[in-house]
Every structure is written in C-alpha cells, then in structure tokens.
Design a protein around this nucleic acid. Structure first.
Lengths: 215, 215
DNA sequence: GTCTATACCCGGATAGAC
DNA sequence: GTCTATCCGGGTATAGAC
C-alpha cells in the first residue's frame, strides 16, 4: 500500500520524531479532535504520559507539524522566485517540488489543511504562517497576470484553486496510490494549461522548469 | 459575514432540520469527533437528550447529511447527462449547478469531504454513495476524452482535480466570502480551459451551458 | 526518559417524569 | 417531544518512583 522511500520508513527515528510521524497519520485519518493521546502513544509503542516528556500538549504536536510544512513551502516558493525564469516557470517548479515533497515526507499532512484546524482560535501561529505562504503563492499568480504570461484570471480565485489541487495531491500521496513521476507533470500541466495565455508555451515551460532541477 | 439567502436563514425549520443545520456547521468547523452532542443542542436551543428524539445517534445525523448531498449531486449529474449536449456542456452545467447548490443549501457540507469522515469504517453507506457519484463524474470526463472534446488527460486524475475544486467551492461558500454570480463561470472556465482540446470552444460551451438553465 | 497510578473532566447515550 | 437526572467510558494531563 504505502510507498517505501527511505525517508518514509526504515531509518532510526528518535521517539520525538516517531511521535510526530504517528500523530500526523492519526490526525489525517481521524482528525485532530478524533485522535487521543492514547492512540498516538499506542502507535509509537510507548505509554501515554511519555508524550508529555517531549511535547507540552497534544496541540503543540500539531503546531510543530504545521510549522515544519508551511516553513518548507514558503522557503521553496522564495527560492524559485529568486531562481527567476518568470512566473510560469516558478509556478511549474513549485508544483513539481510540492508533489516530490509530499511523497518524501514521513508526515501525513492532510489534517492541517483538510480539517479547519487552523480556524480554531488556539492555532493563531499556524494561521500566520499560512497567510505568509498564501501571499507568496498569490504574488506569483498576480505577476503572471500582469506580465501577460497568464490569462486574465482572478488571482485570488486561481490561488484558491491551486491550493485545492495541492491539497488533493497531499491527499493522494498519503492514501498510498502508486504515484509515478509522470503524475507531477500531469498536475503541473493541468494548472498551467488553464492559466497560460498562450497554451502553446506549455512544452517550453515544462522543459525549462525541469532544467537545473535536481530530482 | 454570512450570506442571507432565504433558504439559509429565516424560514421556520423543524427541530429536526435545525439539528441538521447546526450540526453541519459545527462538524465543518470543529470536525465530527470534535463536536459534542451538547454543542449541537446548545446551538439549536434544546437540551442534549432532545437530539435522541430525532436521531438514533450522533453518527446518524452525519449520515443523513451525507445522504442528502451525494444523492442530490448524483441526481444532477444524471439529469445533465440526459439533457445531452456533450461532455463539455454537461460538465460546465454541473459545475454551475454545484456552485449554486452550495450557496443555497442551509447545510455546511465541508466536513463530509474535508475530513476523512467517509474513511471511517462505520460510514460504509456514505462511501457507497460517494463511489456512485465519482463514477458518474469520471464517466463524463472519460467520454469527453474519447469523443475528442477533451485533451488526452488521465480521467482519474482529472476527476480528482475537479473534485478538489468542488470542495474548494464548498469551502469558500461556507466561509462566507461574498461570491458573486460571475464566480461560478470563472470556476467552470478554469476547469474547462484546462480540459478542452480546443480552447477556442470555451465561449460557445459557456453560452450553450447557460441556455435553458434556470438560474 | 519512561514507567505506574491517578485526578478530574467531558463525552455519548438512557430512564423516566411531564 | 422535551425535560431533569444519571451512568459510565474515555479524554488530557500531572505526580512521583525508577
């Protein structure tokens, strides 16, 4: 069922890491509220109070997962921005990166975005990180529209749609469909086909996006 | 914050309907497991055991919400199929219908799809209804590809992306962004721009989809 | 760092009066 | 159909020994 990349299985994780891994999987399938600290401890193979030697609370486990994911995503968008090539290539690269990232991370990050975890008042730090990420993504699309690369779409709506597709990607990686390398291109193609002002540019953009792209 | 359509507020709902409405909203924001029957009762304005005069369990409240939504969706897809016009027009009409439906329903249906509620063993009936809906949606896309209307996309992947966009639509309607009439077209346009083999047909399809379409 | 034991609260659901 | 009262299991978190 699951992909067996080195970073997802094997390895000798610390107890702290194993708590994060198992908690992310349980949050994803049963929700944050639907997962008990007993469930997490059982999955890790320790007793329930042991969790509290590593994390202050159940909430702080979720907060660490949110922090890691959104910081990585924002960092990737920033890197592709500075690599240049224009909005279309930046967006294509980001989509490739996201698919690869979701496949290789040992965490199942669905719960963060699938549930409205971030709308709960106590997750204000996560909300702040998400706003930062969203503004980076939206600025790529806005630049694409103003520079004439993209059609005259509403950047906010396009940003929402791209986010929805990313979530669907996370979902698919996590629920263990095989997921070949071609899939990343298909997803990026779907988005770019819709956004590009001249669709004939798609092939050139795909090629350029892959150039100097360390798989 | 919220839209004030007649079907969403006002009206004199029965206690049973009010339970469904408030439960759907709480499930959407706090998750199924994160919502207690006491929360629901408080929102409705009755005492907690009163819920059990209308529903056998908390689960059966969720089941009724799932049933209503998926039956309506499958029914719409079937109707547009028999109305004819070809896959592109069927899909465009369905997307318009979905946006309108999400705006007018008094229920907040995010929880059904956002969380993995349907992956829980006890929701087997809902899973069956979802599979039926998915196969209808996938057949529209498959026919579009085989008849040459659509590009050579993977129907399964395209179906997943369309589902993701529908969910984002539900999410957006529910979280109360204004949502004008143009938005429905923009969403349908985004999907069809990416799928259509010849993008120049988009305008004709939009016009045809709106014809004999009772707003 | 991990364990056992436990405090204390809140969850779903039922009984039975009105 | 709605109420009050209540059962009991399971929830998070802490105390303190090893």
């Amino acid at each position: 069922m699951a992909v067996a990349t080195s970073s997802r299985t094997s390895k000798h994780w610390s107890t702290r890491d194993r708590i994060l891994i198992e908690a992310s999987r349980l949050f994803a399938t049963r929700g944050f509220a639907g997962t008990s600290t007993r469930d997490i401890a059982l999955a890790v193979g320790v007793r329930q109070p042991t969790l509290y030697a590593h994390f202050a609370s159940k909430q702080s486990i979720a907060e660490e997962l949110i922090r890691r994911d959104l910081i990585d995503g924002a960092e990737a968008l920033t890197r592709f921005r500075s690599d240049g090539g224009g909005p279309a290539i930046e967006l294509y690269r980001y989509l490739l990166w996201e698919v690869a990232y979701d496949r290789s991370t040992p965490f199942d990050l669905r719960a963060i975005y699938q549930t409205d975890l971030l709308e709960l008042p106590e997750f204000s730090e996560g909300r702040k990180l998400l706003r930062r990420f969203d503004s980076l993504l939206q600025s790529v699309i806005s630049r694409g529209v103003s520079e004439g690369d993209f059609d005259e779409v509403d950047p906010l709506l396009a940003c929402r749609v791209v986010n929805a597709i990313i979530l669907e990607t996370i979902r698919a990686s996590a629920s263990g469909s095989p997921g070949d390398d071609a899939e990343a291109d298909e997803i990026a193609d779907f988005v770019l086909r819709s956004l590009l002002a001249r669709r004939s540019r798609l092939t050139a953009i795909r090629t350029a996006a892959h150039r100097e792209w360390p798989h």
